[in-house]
Amino acid sequence: MEPLIEVQGLHFRYDSGPEVLRGVNFRLFPGESVALLGPNGSGKTTFVLHLNGLLRGEGLVRVCGLPTRPEHLPSIRRKVGILFQDPDEQLFMPTVLEDAAFGPLNLGLDPPRALHAAQEALALTGMSAAWHKAPYHLSAGEKRRAALAGVLAMRPEILVLDEPTTYLDPPGRRELADLLRRLPQAKLVVTHDATFACATTTRAVFFREGRIESEGPTAELIRRLGWDERLPPAEPAP
């Protein structure tokens, strides 16, 4: 099976700073949901920003067979939808509906079709009733769902979610996990939340110092690494 995302030997540094990514190799297959775990500053967010060409490092990054070269970026950005950590940075249009329609309009859809796609995405995320609201009138959970609607309106094949549970209370996290499980896209979830990772993904990779240090089934990897404070770390193998 062809991978949706294929990354080989990815290196990256910001300006003249230290190397943030130091040879990342990764594959995401259709239908998969993968958690990206790791300590703060381990390179997870930097890595996902490479997946639709927002950052470009040395090495191979291929999305649906297309390398992330400038001529392919419009197609790649249609296929990879990124939900950023802070929804205030993603909700920049005056109203929720206009924000959800921003992506489809940029894809070249005419206004009625773009609005239809936006309304569908808002319905999917349970935000239909707030279509006319300004983003600063929304609660944290509503902002997160409105931002997700903006991504889903572009009908991406791959969803990348960067710390999606930030600012959410436990019911909000549960609602988001339920919603993500219903979505058919392949998913890449950057998170520190072990419960959320177990609820939404089947495989996990662990980043440390710009490299993927280990990977495996989500629950098993989390237990092995002692990443869940509720569970004692597994005994090391003799």
Partner: peptide, 16 residues
């Protein structure tokens, strides 16, 4: 970055 990720190419299209 968030605008670029959603296909922004220098223009704000009007929805309605």
């Amino acid at each position: 970055r968030a605008m670029l990720a959603r296909g922004y190419r220098g223009e704000f299209p009007l929805a309605s």
